[in-house]
Structures are given as structure tokens and as C-alpha cells.
Nucleic acid binder design. Structure first.
Length: 426
RNA sequence: GGAGAGGUGGCUGAGUGGUCGAAAGCACCGCACUCGAAAUGCGGCGUACCUUUACGGGUACCGUGGGUUCGAAUCCCACCCUCUCCGCCA
């Protein structure tokens, strides 16, 4: 949610950001609605003050058995009430309109985020590793099906498109990857492991800016809950409605969970293989910080995600997203892109965003210094550390050999004792 | 799913229609006392929003949302959550 005061004081800043996202005029609209809401509110509060005063007088009159005065006062209240109903409705409508407008408007990128329309304008920050020399690389579908360890047809029969069945050592590799990632994040990077609900209510989805705008991207249960599209939702919601002691910040939490996405707007994209699925595992990193800490924490978080790819010795590059490619809630986003030999290009495997106080305002998550008055909204950050399914794809493709086998990266050996290759040893 | 109990300020906890934003205690802050501290005494001490140059004034909030009433923490309805017992269940 946006700070309406900041918007009021600096509408040009908001107008610029929203115009770039095709919402030209939204800032002026919000300012106008806000003025209207406050005008009605001020007027109606004055009427209510008068009414409260009259009611008090009625009580006093009744106490001294002065029925005549009480009746006269009650008649006066009746007149006020008649006008109040319409006023109240006008105020509700205006406030609702303002809220609905603001709830559907994206966060404002930091001033130094590169302007741009789409992914072509993203800026490469750094690159790690050299793409392996693989002649005629096969993609993970061919490799997996060739080994008999991946079965998209069975998945389609029982669930439909965009689902995968993994078997045997490939299923085991996926599981090992999740363990490996979360162990690194907890044991080496100081994140606290959380096992959160995978179904959440409207408030949690709204607070993490998945609602109201992106409901169609989510799966909903018959009782009205939502399947989490990422553990960002439950992890960030840990502080929903809370006032956290400033000493406890930064708060770093992580979870390995399945993620569920309807991929409503992605028909036709990445239809082959397990790049884009309705369900996938991901290790998510979430940090809750003070306003002062968030930028440094963001850099740290990106390095925590990068560490996984380095350990797995997978070539990647780190991209600073331009304004046009950033998500709804972010002020700054870095994507990690891993090299996929079959596609001959880098593909997103992690996205790390600093949301500033955007989500905190939506979920009323604040922080307070011990012994001091007053609260401030926290900052929230989230990042993948990493997407397990896509990492599996990256390993399959980057570690394939000419015999159709997949070598196991050194870092995973302790998670897969005795297994050096999938598809035949040595 | 059934039966019952309950949700009040940072915490404990009183409050069943009017002067209650809410007693009291604890915690916290200030002052006094003290060489200092403890103890004691006095005072202060919720949040959000509107309004005002300022001082201040006002509105809302006692789980959430409705309703009754001139007036609701208090009465009514629905929902949510917690606890106890029963049932079911991995």
C-alpha cells in the first residue's frame, strides 16, 4: 500500500512511475479522491461530535428526571441522523474507491533503477563462471526421458499440462537439492528455517501484494483459501499485524516449500519441460528489516542466492531489473539467471526484491525501538535461494555427458552418498 | 463435526446501557527522597486518523463485521480465533 501523505506531497514522483506502467493519471486521481475523503470525513466528524455531545446531555437530563429536555434533545439528534446516513455512504464509497485504486497500483522503483520497457533493458551486474563447452547439448526433457526418470505423459494423464513426474535418482536429486539449499541458507547464512502453511487466507495474500490484482495467477481452495505461489507469502506474513522490536531486526527466515501457480497469463510460453510448472519446490529467503537496513540486506540476500549457484558450479549472471520488468511490489529487483545449454542462454532461477515498506503497509507490520514511543513500518525483502525445479534443469543440462548421463556436482555428494552420476556410474 | 468456556491497553485483570479510552496491579518514563541504589511518595504513560501556524479541538478503536438504541466494552445476529471434553483423522 502506498503512503498517501507522501503521494500528496510528491505526486509527480508517483505519476512518473505509474505512467511508465501504463497508469497515467492515477496519481492525480488518488490525490483528488484523498481530498474528497478528507473533506467528507472532517464534516461528518463534526456532526458526530455534535451528536455525541447531545447524547451525553440526554443522559444528564434523564439522570435529573428532566424528560422534556431529553425529548427535545432526542428530536435534535433525529435531525442529525437523517443527514448522516447519506454522508456516511459517500465517505465509505470515496474511501473504498481510494483504497481500491491504491491497492492495484505498483510500488515505486528506487530513483536509480534503470528505466526500461522489458527484459531487454535489464542491466547485467556481474557474471560468474564460463558456460561449459557441450557439443549438441540435449535439453532436460530429452535427457530425463532418455534415462526413463522423467514422465510428462503420466503427469498429464493424472494432472494435465505443466506437471512433472520425476522418478528414481532424479526424484532423489530434486530432494537432495532442496536439502542442500536450505542447509546452506540456515547453517551458513543465518536464516531460520520455517515450515509454514501452504494454504493462506485473503489477508496474507493481500499483504504480500498477490491480491487483489493477481488472483487469477493463484489457485484457490473450495473454502476460499489460496495455495501459496511462493513461500514469500507465509514467511513475510509472519509479521503481519505485528510490532517487532527493532533489536530483532533484521529477521531472516527461509523455507523449502512447494509453490503453486496457475500460470494463467503464460499460455504458450515454456510449454516444453519443467521450466514453467503449476507446482514446483523452492527455497525462499525473506528478510524483515528496519528502513535503514534494507538496501544492504538486499545485497546480502543476492549473495546468499548466488552462493548456491557457485557451490553447484553453475554459470550464471546477475541482472538488475529495469523499471518495466520489475514486479508489482518491488522497489529494486535482482534476478539470477543460470546458463541453460539447450537454449544457449541464461534463464531466471532466482529473483530477489526489496519491497521497502510496501508490503508492510498492506499488512500493518511495524517495528519499535524498546523504550521509545512511536512505530515505523518495517521493510520486507524476498528472494529465491533457489528455485529447485529450475536448478534441477540446470544441473541436468549443464552436467550432461555424451553418454546421456548426468554428473552430480561435488557439492551434492554428501547428500547423495555413492552417487556420482545419474544413468550409470563412473 | 458436536457440547461448553472465553477473546478488554505492553502484561495481569475489573467493568451487564450514560460522565468508560476504559478501575486496579505490574511494567515503563519523569520528579522527590538518597552519596548511590533499593524501598517509598508524587506525577505521567494506548493506537490510528481528521483538523489547527500553534496551543489545542475532534473522530474511531474493548477479536472482526453488521444490528438495536438519543447513547453500546456492556444487548442482538453472523463470522474468526483460543481453550476443555466428545467424535473423526495422518
Amino acid at each position: 500500500m502506498h503512503d498517501i501523505r507522501a503521494l500528496r506531497e510528491n505526486p509527480e514522483l508517483y505519476e512518473k512511475a505509474w505512467a511508465a506502467k501504463g497508469r497515467s493519471g492515477a496519481a492525480a486521481e488518488a490525490v483528488e479522491l484523498d481530498a474528497k475523503v478528507r473533506a467528507i470525513k472532517t464534516a461528518s466528524e463534526q456532526v458526530q461530535a455534535r451528536r455525541n455531545d447531545l447524547s451525553k446531555q440526554i443522559g444528564q437530563a434523564k439522570a435529573r428526571k428532566d424528560e422534556a429536555t431529553a425529548q427535545a434533545l432526542m428530536a435534535e439528534v433525529e435531525i442529525l441522523k437523517a443527514n448522516q446516513a447519506a454522508e456516511a455512504e459517500a465517505e465509505r464509497d470515496a474511501a473504498q474507491a481510494l483504497h481500491d485504486l491504491l491497492a492495484a497500483l505498483p510500488n515505486i522503483p528506487f530513483a536509480d533503477v534503470p528505466a526500461g520497457a522489458d527484459e531487454h533493458d535489464n542491466v547485467e551486474v556481474r557474471r560468474w563462471g564460463e558456460p561449459f563447452a557441450i557439443s549438441n547439448p540435449r535439453d532436460h526433457v530429452d535427457i530425463g526421458e532418455g534415462l526413463g526418470l522423467i514422465d510428462f505423459e503420466a503427469a498429464a494423464r493424472m494432472s494435465g499440462a505443466r506437471f512433472t513426474v520425476l522418478k528414481g535418482e532424479l526424484a532423489r536429486l530434486e530432494r537432495a537439492l532442496g536439502q542442500f539449499m536450505i542447509d546452506i541458507q540456515t547453517q551458513e547464512h543465518g536464516y531460520t528455517e520455517v515450515s509454514p502453511p501452504l494454504l493462506v487466507n485473503d489477508a496474507a495474500a493481500y499483504g504480500t501484494d498477490k491480491l487483489p490484482k493477481f488472483a487469477e495467477d493463484l489457485f484457490q481452495t473450495t473454502d476460499g483459501r489460496w495455495l501459496i505461489p511462493t513461500a514469500e507469502v507465509p514467511l513475510t506474513s509472519l509479521v503481519m499485524g505485528q510490532i517487532v522490536d527493532e533489536e530483532e531486526l533484521p529477521m531472516r527466515v527461509t523455507a523449502l516449500t512447494p509453490c503453486f501457480r496457475s500460470e494463467a497469463g503464460a499460455s504458450g510460453r515454456d510449454t516444453r519441460g519443467m521450466i514453467r510448472q503449476h507446482q514446483f519446490y523452492k527455497v525462499e529467503l525473506v528478510s524483515i528489516t528496519t528502513p535503514e537496513q534494507s538496501e544492504a540486506e538486499h545485497e546480502r540476500m543476492v549473495s546468499c542466492a548466488e552462493a548456491i549457484l557457485k557451490r553447484l558450479e553453475l554459470p550464471f549472471r546477475t541482472m538488475l531489473l529495469c523499471t518495466g520488468d520489475m514486479g508489482f511490489g518491488a522497489r529494486r529487483t535482482y534476478d539470477l539467471e543460470v546458463w541453460l545449454p539447450s537454449q544457449g542462454k541464461y534463464r531466471e532461477i532466482s529473483s530477489c526484491s526489496n519491497c521497502g515498506d510496501f508490503q508492510a503497509r498492506r499488512m500493518d507490520a511495524r517495528t519499535k525501538k524498546a523504550g521509545e514511543k512511536g512505530t515505523r513500518y518495517v521493510h520486507s525483502l524476498n528472494g529465491s535461494g533457489l528455485a529447485v525445479g529450475r536448478t534441477l534443469v540446470a544441473i541436468m543440462e549443464n552436467y550432461q555427458d555424451e553418454k546421456g548421463r548426468i554428473a552430480i556436482p561435488q557439492a551434492l555428494h554428501r547428500y547423495l552418498p555413492g552417487l556420482t552420476h545419474i544413468g550409470g556410474q563412473g
